[in-house]
Design a protein around this nucleic acid. Structure first.
Lengths: 193, 193
DNA sequence: GCAAAAGTGTTACGCGTACACCCATGG
DNA sequence: CCATGGGTGTACGCGTAACACTTTTGC
């Protein structure tokens, strides 16, 4: 989220965005904007939807082709911009009042992501290079808002044959260390079904 | 398909389309264009994808927000335009060479529709007000290119609870007449799962 | 009577779901 | 030793998939 410095919607938070250059594709533009704002590169990026209601920008007619990205937390370097532009992250269920129709856009993205968790493994793009099975389950539960059975979740996830053990372990705190896993093909979109 | 009278892609077939008016939403524009070309009204319409490659139109930069519609054959009155504009229908697997990136657009629409048949009942929008169970199965098999078991298909379809018998029968040819059905809520998008 | 499509049930298998206890570690 | 999260197997039920014969009609 970036805080708007000017009207309309001054001081409200808005999704990062911008105008498509004449010599870049929609996807290139989305990638460029993403990198400018967050530093993230080579991450999952998907076109979400195009929003074209007549008065969605009170100043003039604007049609927005929305994209969403799945970025591991580690790849974010948003501290850079913190000084110049006010940029901040919000949890999906603690959104402030947003500018334009950006709340609707976020709802659509969230909805899409929840659906995709069920039939694809793109969700793994949200995790770092090495992760524990509990990390994966936590991510699924947080995104979908739905608790899952640990044994069933692991059986399902391992059965997909898309992750493998790194051999490493992660110790954090007063409990048994967890095996670390990695994606077998980090660059595959890996749909299944 | 409309045949292009001018370059670029003169004499090739192209999807109907046009520019969004300043005072209409994307969906209104798609609906307007659809009605102009086919006469269809009040039909299922869904945004497909936005295509924005840099050189997809060799003349100038054009970004297209593609929509697709599901129209029962009976609602088409494309004879009207046949005189003025050359308009024609093609089967999905017998497409001629197309202008621009329109083949890619059709592939995307077909792919989306095949997927939707699995988890929604929008496909029924392609059928007339009254139809037989065999009509439904034929439509599913034609769209998805996949044969289905008659008993399983009927069990599944009737179990969805979205169609009901009209009471009428259809006799056509030297065989047992078939019961006619209709959608219970023709205007519901009726997702399930 | 014969060709052509309509209509109709049962069985088997696989997958998803429910469920509880021991293990390894840090403090 | 205790608190904390990691790790593991089985049984049941439901839904999907496989499968073949009778019925009604027009000619």
């Amino acid at each position: 989220m970036a805080c708007r410095a000017k009207d309309p919607f001054k001081d409200l938070w808005a999704l990062p965005g911008g105008f498509v250059g004449i010599e870049e594709s929609l996807e290139e533009c989305a990638n460029r904007k993403l990198t400018e704002k967050t530093g993230a590169q080579n991450v999952y990026l998907e076109q979400l939807y195009s929003f074209g209601a007549i008065n969605r920008d009170p100043r003039e007619r604007v049609i927005s082709v929305a994209y969403f990205s799945l970025v591991p937390f580690e790849k974010l370097t948003f501290e850079k911009q913190a000084a110049t532009e006010k940029t901040q992250w919000y949890a999906i269920h603690q959104l402030p009042t947003l500018a334009f129709d950006h709340r609707q856009i976020i709802r659509a993205a969230h909805h899409r992501l929840v659906a995709k968790l069920e039939y694809s493994t793109v969700g793994l793009s949200l995790l770092p290079d090495a992760f524990t099975l509990s990390h994966v389950q936590d991510m699924y539960e947080i995104v979908s808002g739905k608790a899952r059975d640990k044994r069933n979740f692991r059986k399902w996830l391992l059965g997909l044959n898309v992750i493998e053990e790194t051999g490493g372990m992660q110790s954090d705190g007063a409990h048994r260390p967890a095996k670390l896993y990695r994606r077998k093909n980090p660059n595959e979109t890996s749909l299944f079904r």
